[in-house]
Design a protein around this nucleic acid. Structure first.
Lengths: 205, 205
DNA sequence: TTTTGATAATTTTGTTTAAATAGTCAGTAA
DNA sequence: TTACTGACTATTTAAACAAAATTATCAAAA
């Protein structure tokens, strides 16, 4: 898979870590390549030896975080006791992910309009993983007869994920945004759990 | 209430109509006060005799539209056969409202970040009307025993409205936005009806 | 192969100017 | 006194440019 040497991979990781810390604390645009380099006592030029440009570096960090998130989700949704528990796990894992990395995502707020395609691919990958895992959960529960039969589990999951996501975009509160404000995250989280509760009941007999 | 003469009110209305047409076809920033004035064969200065400034004129039109929307909603939700029908009405009326006035709202897209407080007040008024009417509907249905007892109808309506609104902000599709794109409105509309269907079932025995 | 200092290229920020548009006002007409 | 206007001023927008900050490259050294 990876074509470089072990040494190279180790250094690459170190750069990713340093970049992550900077991006997390100061955001994308307030982080300079020089700062990342000097955090590691390296020359800036070396960063360009390992990564083609700044945005690719950011994306590489993003990809790593997404991978961890996905692993997390898969191991947790590998088995579950009931449908609600499965969805609750998804909601919680995502909540923690957002809370932990909140400032890292300032890149999203800044570039709101046109995120690079690569970022969208990562978002899509996450979304598809969620779709696959949760659709499977619905299918299993439907087969067990724990909920009503479902024609198209994917459609239901898609709808629910949209609805859950929508809870963070309250139409009324001042200062809109694609991305929720940090202070609201916990409120959003509990609203989601309530929505899930009603939604799941709607799927049951 | 209104302090001007009838004549004044009539002219005011004419200005509002002309402004509405311009804003609807060309959007806020591509409409000049001169254009509105000459549509009516009046001097621009007269517009300032009736309205303090351009944004107040826009807001006055907005207020009028909101008033019509609210009247619409109230007369429709005055009585209903069952809970689902009530919510379907709300969804449909809002859908039509958005479709009809789509371009008028370009002001919202442009000023995305900081809409004037007055606009937020109008949005809030609409939201509160929806809350009151739909909460009442839930209360009535709960008392009739058609759905499970509900502690706090307002909370449920708020949640559902958020979720419905969220359907228009698909997290995955490229090109985010606070405001949905015109081509997606019908797809959003049917997703909402599906979400409503499941949600209502979740409220039933 | 990995690393760097020096340098080039690009982006961002700030400044100036001109044009377009918003907004004011003294005065006229009904 | 109320409704209205032409001529004026003030403000906003946009384009063009320069300076500063930052990204990105590259020839050469370790």
């Amino acid at each position: 898979m990876s074509s470089g040497s072990d040494q190279q991979d180790i250094k690459r990781e170190k750069i990713l870590d340093a970049a992550y810390q900077r991006f997390l604390h100061y955001g994308y645009s307030k982080t300079t390549m020089n700062e990342i380099a000097s955090d590691l006592s390296l020359s800036k030029a070396l960063l360009y030896y390992y990564f083609p440009d700044k945005s690719q570096l950011y994306i590489a960090v993003m990809r790593k975080l997404a991978g961890e998130y996905i692993d997390n989700l898969q191991s947790r949704l590998n088995k579950f006791d009931n449908l609600k528990e499965a969805f609750v796990s998804q909601i919680n894992i995502k909540h923690d992910f957002i809370v932990k990395n909140y400032n890292f995502f300032d890149f999203f707020r800044v570039n709101e309009q046109n995120l690079p395609d690569t970022i969208w691919e990562i978002i899509t990958e996450i979304h598809q993983t969620e779709m696959v895992l949760l659709s499977a959960a619905i299918k299993i529960e439907a087969e067990k007869g724990n909920i009503k039969p479902v024609d198209n589990p994917g459609e239901i999951v898609d709808l629910l994920l949209d609805a859950l996501h929508g809870v963070s975009v309250s139409a009324v509160s001042h200062k809109k945004v694609m991305f929720p404000q940090k202070e609201h995250l916990d409120e959003i989280h509990s609203k989601r759990l309530l929505l899930l509760d009603i939604f799941i009941k709607g799927l049951m007999y």
